[in-house]
Design a binder for these strands. Sequence first.
DNA 1: CGACGATATTTTGCATTCAAAAATGACCCG
DNA 2: CGGGTCATTTTTGAATGCAAAATATCGTCG
Lengths: 221, 221
Amino acid sequence: MAAPAPEETETGTLHEQIVAKLRAVLLNGELADGARIPEAQLCLRFGISRTPLREALKVLAAEGFIELRPNRGSIVAPIDPVEVGHLFEMKGSVEHMIGRLAAVRATDVDAARIERAHAELGGHPDPAVYTALNQDFHRALAVATHNPVLVQTYDNLQKRVLRLRFVVNENPTRVAQSFGEHEGIMVAFRARARLDLAERLEEHNRLTGEAVRRALKGEGA
Amino acid sequence: MAAPAPEETETGTLHEQIVAKLRAVLLNGELADGARIPEAQLCLRFGISRTPLREALKVLAAEGFIELRPNRGSIVAPIDPVEVGHLFEMKGSVEHMIGRLAAVRATDVDAARIERAHAELGGHPDPAVYTALNQDFHRALAVATHNPVLVQTYDNLQKRVLRLRFVVNENPTRVAQSFGEHEGIMVAFRARARLDLAERLEEHNRLTGEAVRRALKGEGA
DNA sequence: CGACGATATTTTGCATTCAAAAATGACCCG
DNA sequence: CGGGTCATTTTTGAATGCAAAATATCGTCG
């Protein structure tokens, strides 16, 4: 139960590891939206005391995953459909930028990594696996811009989107459609077509956002 | 001066206040780049113990203001000229987005706030004051997009840029030039000209970025 | 005189502890 | 039987304490 197995997320500082583990708990949907964060339980599970856990909570709160209520504990930040729209709108702009820059700046190493991520995606049509590999693919494109500030900004948005996957990755239709869009993205990337790549990425993001919003409405929160 | 107007960022939490105060210390340039963070001293100064201060340190580290070294304390994140370029490149994209959206979505209240911020800027040509009011002006434009995720992303980038002001706000020439660009921005905004506003904002950002980079090179950091 | 190494001091990171606030529940009164 | 008040328990937020690591100090030797 209290698996002391070290997760593969081996970052440097112990603090970073705690943040990563805690974020994983939130992303895995183990805790329902709006649920109180069980500090003591998590301390037991991670084998740490409350001090470092609370440090991680503050960081996650600053990132928007957790809501800190004065003297009343922290809760998992509820998913607000309106905010989801804003999130995808913002990410769309970043995607466009990624397309414009990656097309021009990608090195051979970047291209190889992107091709590999794309190929792996095709081999795993399973929605759950797809989500993870999808992240790798898009992140590889972001990295190809060679702008660390962009990568950081993108990571932050992407992590927030990831919270929503459980409502959309159950949809095989969208997964197939998504992969089709990726094919188009790759065509544009291989041709190093700046604006074409930018627009395809933005459109891909827009369609994903719509799928998510539709799923959110369908599930009736 | 740094008038702490009661913005929506004025959360009641003590933690948020500590983060804000600590950030202010960093932004004021009280601590040199790469300098060790004097935990004990800051605890005395803020009248708190190390626990809440360290929570704030972790948050600031996640934001990129502080570098956390394992077992060796935290240091003020050094300014990397290359990263400054990436920072402005990223911010340029966001500025463009702000222009496109603000032109369409700004309400009368937004417009009034933007006009007021612009007018105040004209009345205070003093570089030090200009910097603070300049932030208000651009933030008002960001708020007019009515996309909180964008505002949050913009705030984060803007805060990182603010660290650099001491190298550029000593330049009256650039201040005058900057205000001239603001005039053009206002013309485009009043006309609600989407792309014109977007391009003017992006160009303004680009010029500011170049001024900063030039100043950084000049000072030979 | 300078470099190296052992020891003392400080600093860091985390566990523990403690006071205050909120949630819970028991009790009383209408 | 329901509503409200007060005591009890739990949880939160922050100060303190403690072991380990790093830094500084000093003595010794080449």
